[in-house]
Amino acid sequence: MSGTIATLVTVLQSDGIIPRGSRVEVFDAIYWVFLVLGALVGIVVIGYMLYNAYKYRDVGETDEDAAESKKVERPKLGELPRGGGGGRKLFLSFTLSAIIVISLIAWAYGILLYVEEGAAEEPPTEQAEALEVQVEGYQFGWRFTYPNGHTVDSAVGDSFKVPADRMVRLNVTSADVFHNFGIPGLRVKSDAIPGQYTQQWFIAEDPGTNYTARCYELCGAGHSDMTATVEVMSQEEWQNWYEGTGNETETGDDGNQSDGGDDDGHALEDVLEEPVDYGMEVHA
């Protein structure tokens, strides 16, 4: 946690108020600001509430109360409802809360603009071109199609291989029902809707790391198991692998990264469970 806050501070310092960088960095910055402020507001408001509840608890009628109850008007049975005054204080607190919320959201909106537009215009790394990948969800797995037409399929145990430090743009759709493609570790998520294409991007920073992509919209009996492994490779490794894929027939088999002695990749393949057969036809 302290590491994350340190990240947050660095991000804020280096990039001004609007954090930039990978989606993980952006998310962490905004999440922790919201969390800290939210917790603070929550503690103050709830604390004040508990304090008042205690302070004005009924302790039976004392002399002071008796004196005060002459001044304080109490609701009477059968009266037409009316307010108890105190409007100014109410408005003050309301304005304060509105200012906090609106400025927070305005700030978050700046980040949204960065995520949606800024990042598109200026790729944060020296790698000029982003990698564009088609992602197609189906019951129950994910198909990833690279620019050269190579397709990998999570249901037969293929992993989704991406280069580190390079922007990856996803063009997400579905072959059947509404899915949602998300890689929580990379803070990217997108609805996968039949007949629609949704665009998202991410940058993975650590080569050799594996992430799990999951489905975030209920899509049927196999929803819980609809995962895919996202494998981050160094750029050369990835390039080597990728160049070997272009001319092959798209059998979806995973034997084509045998070049580079990719230990992580193989370890991963061992870990992968047997592909679950939901009786779905896998068409490449």
């Binding site: 952006v26 998310f27 999440y31 959201i105 978050a108 909106y109 980040i111 949204l112 949602n180």
Partner: peptide
């Protein structure tokens, strides 16, 4: 906050 919603969705 839409950017947070992106991650919290689902």
């Amino acid at each position: 906050a839409v950017v947070l919603d992106y991650e919290f969705r689902g």
